[in-house]
Design a protein around this nucleic acid. Structure first.
Lengths: 338, 338
DNA sequence: CTGTTAGCGCATTCAC
DNA sequence: GTGAATGCGCTAACAG
């Protein structure tokens, strides 16, 4: 491996001068700069960033921690984060936690050891607060994206789960639905909890009955899901929900598949709506009615905010960016009933 | 930041002893080991891997370079790579090249600077050979996945594009199709080239006419695509293709959308088949007939192979793993005609 | 404008 | 079984 010394020797200058040329620091005569640059090219020299990191205490490494790269929502988040990181000269370490707190903890330790400059994280759930505190203790700035963890000092890029839920439910209610079930994820995840609470609230505001059996808990990730709605569809028609609100896109897919297996037509017999789009699919066949969130921006803006912290530009106060959801009405919510 | 020296001082031992405890090397009495470990826990010490990298010349960093994280095929590749890397104690730097050779080159330089231990790469195309040679020059092992670059010494995990294409075309031909068009990607990409050649070969074997206008070039990535099939669908019915073979999933989506806009029914009027599945979508609505590839394995096995090189276990000879495609017949290829 | 000294945090080599 | 010296490749602080 060629080092700064090899360059220095061959260019008849001191290693320091080479360092200066590489980093464009201090004043250097045109002559020596050219001479050094020539040698650098000749020897294909590329600085060793481990050495740089060691005394600069900067690694130019960022990490994106997400719970399911397989979900198109997070895929777009990753895309946004990668774009911004790249654009600013950082490399991005991808951590996929599979909604698993233990994996998240392992990653956090590894990242601290790697001395990443910053972290963009969608935590696995409320217990993640321990991991975040660990980051704080190690002075690694982070921004929380998509999922809220309360009472933590950091930047945030969050969606509006209340708004998104209300948009979806109001749409169903406007269409005449009175019996709306919800299938949500674990309530230890803020997005799940907020959508859940917004569901209850919206029903109340609209004077609709709340039936405990209409609330079903499952998981966000496909591998962990169960459909959980068998008891609903075996109900007599008059008691059966006429619409189902799925807390995320994967849950919606699972539900629609189950309904189809049971020969129940969507949306004719039961309407289905959900949070987060499946653009790839919707593009192809506009079917799912969704509250669409600007996934790319979660990643892009989240990364921008950490970088501002890392580079110590930007305001002293922590910021919370709210990204608005958008109601996209398609076939799965059917047409007005009665 | 707490260092090995802080631990040493507090535990009344030398830094060296602490290092030994951390790395489980050499003989250490149970007493001192326990004492040191206690202090390590107390001070929440985590080794600085920049320092470790600097004298071990190992970073425990791997990189996955793919062309489009947005494509579910690569999403699954990423998942596989991340899983294996994680499992083996490596961190994964994600590089998204957007099918852009310049971006790829920039990434390669950054990765060399970071002294990553190994790279798993789906190159942007034939010119990537320069980047691969750069890796070789810097003694960074890599495995080529999905896309072939010839005359390079390295491990490979490749699909069988000939087989996959033949499966798809033979299926169409068996159904009675005689005028089959192909929309492919840039011929500088091996998968595109091989599918293109297999198309020509298969038509020949089946004594079918080759019409130059039936071969259309576009891009693999959605942002760069144009449908390119306008001239085909304005043809008189008797000359129009009855089926279209799309070289990848995104191309198929684009084509089907175009056809629908023109009120041409798929598969009734024109059948469409393609390479690579869109499981998320197919799961939901089994529509596209595809040659499905084990995307996860490309990432997983690719990563396994580099790690074996990095750790210098495994055979001296470079290996090429061939992953077989599987024909999945669904609606878009219609039913036997005539 | 350029060079020297020192040290980032750790592990290897050699002593003891 | 443990410690001291040394160097990995680079840059900050100082000197000239």
């Amino acid at each position: 491996m060629t080092t700064i010394y090899d360059i220095a020797k061959k260019a008849n200058v001191s290693p320091m001068t080479v360092s200066r040329v590489i980093n464009n620091k201090g004043n250097i005569s045109e002559k020596t700069r050219e001479k050094v640059e020539a040698v650098i090219k000749e020897l294909n020299y590329i600085p060793n960033s481990a050495a740089q990191s060691l005394n600069l205490k900067k690694t130019k490494l960022l990490s994106l921690i997400i719970t399911d790269i397989t979900n198109p929502f997070f895929t777009k988040v990753a895309r946004g984060a990668a774009d911004k990181a790249n654009q600013m000269g950082y490399q991005l370490i991808l951590c996929n936690t599979d909604e698993d707190y233990e994996k998240e903890s392992d990653y956090i330790n590894a990242l601290i050891s790697k001395r990443v400059d910053g972290v963009i994280i969608a935590p696995t759930g409320d217990p993640s607060i321990k991991n975040l505190k660990k980051l704080i203790k190690n002075r690694i700035p982070f921004t929380l994206i998509d999922r809220e963890i309360e009472e933590i000092s950091c930047d945030r890029v969050l969606g509006d789960n209340y708004e998104g839920t209300k948009l979806l439910l109001q749409h169903l209610i406007d269409y005449g639905h009175k019996r709306i079930a919800m299938v949500h994820g674990p309530l230890t995840v803020s997005t799940s909890k907020e959508r859940y609470q917004a569901y209850i609230e919206t029903l109340k505001i609209n004077d609709l009955n709340m039936d405990a059996s209409f609330l079903v808990e499952t998981h966000y990730k496909q591998e962990k899901q169960w459909n959980g709605i068998d008891h609903l569809v075996t109900l007599p028609l008059a008691d059966r929900p006429t619409a189902i609100f799925a807390a995320n896109n994967f849950i919606a897919i699972k539900i629609i598949k189950s309904l189809r297996e049971k020969k129940i037509k969507v949306p004719e017999e039961i309407a289905v709506v959900c949070f987060d789009d499946l653009e790839l699919f919707s593009d192809f066949d506009p079917f799912l009615t969704v509250s669409s969130q600007p996934a790319y921006d979660f990643g892009y803006t989240g990364t921008q905010l950490v970088i501002e912290r890392v580079e110590e530009v930007g305001p002293a106060d922590y910021r919370t960016i709210n990204l608005k959801p958008e109601l996209v009405v398609r076939k799965s919510s059917g047409t007005p009933i009665n």
